[in-house]
Amino acid sequence: MLSYKESTFNKLISVAVLIIIATVISIMTADAGTKAKKERVRMKMYYSKNDAGERVISIGLTAGSGRKMHGLKNAPVLLETVFNDSTTLLATVETDSSGLVDLYLAQDYKLPVNEDGVAIIMAAYEGDDTYRSASRKLEIVDLELDFNFEIEDSVKYLKVSAGKIDGEGNKLPVEGLEIDIGIQRLYSVLPIGSVETEKDGTGILEVQDDLPGDAKGMLTFVANIEDHDEFGTVTKTATEKWGIPVSYEVKPLPRQLYTDEAPLWMIALVVVTLAGAWYHFFLSVSKLIKLRKAGQERL
């Protein structure tokens, strides 16, 4: 027994030594590795156009992987546009503390586009001692969404038309575009369906009758395409009185056991009971007062 134990002990020691050596080596090599190898940087770029027509280019830089992934802060990003094979500098922007940056395009700013209306935007991060470079390219066509509200035989049809703007500024219908339709709610957009556009660029959605709206029954419809390869993210909203009105008035709560004001019967009961009790008390005290008076008269 003893020898067996000893041998296992020796084995354990040798295994432990091996493990320690292996760890030391791996740490050393890892150290050397990181010095030579820069960290990989991932870039994401989105283009979006909101309801008001504001166009935004959003860029995010992240480094690391898995749980260690973090935004790259204060990193300079070069934004360029490619037009007729020549590259023009748009701007240089710096990411914020979470590695994100949004660049708004002024309302009248025109991105240079080719005859098909495609604008090419390039974003590049040069990298530095610790981080590798990263870049991204977006090809964007300006898309316009429009709403049309129609009622036929008391069925509500929401028509959404999509048109892309070509190089000359003409609006061409887009076919086969899937558009998500929803209703703006307090916390988010409630999806009510999606349409696929026909040849003429319109898609039709039958809208349910039982959607609650605001106090007047107004519903805010949101049409949205999300991170589309050609158009980026485009959102359009419109308001129509197609909902069921919900009362926004604050009505006083009924007199209930759980409200501030008690039910009348309860108040009545308490008042009557107390009045009865205290009436007798004071009646009795009045007798004592009489008693006292009687005593004084005698004196």
């Binding site: 989105y46 979006s48 309801d51 703006q184 949205n224 999300e226 993210t233």
Partner: peptide, 18 residues
């Protein structure tokens, strides 16, 4: 609502819905 929406679409970029 509209302002909130702007905020949603602009700031969240593509992240708002998916």
């Amino acid at each position: 609502n509209r302002r909130k929406f702007l905020k949603n679409t602009i700031a969240f970029g593509a992240a708002a819905l998916t």
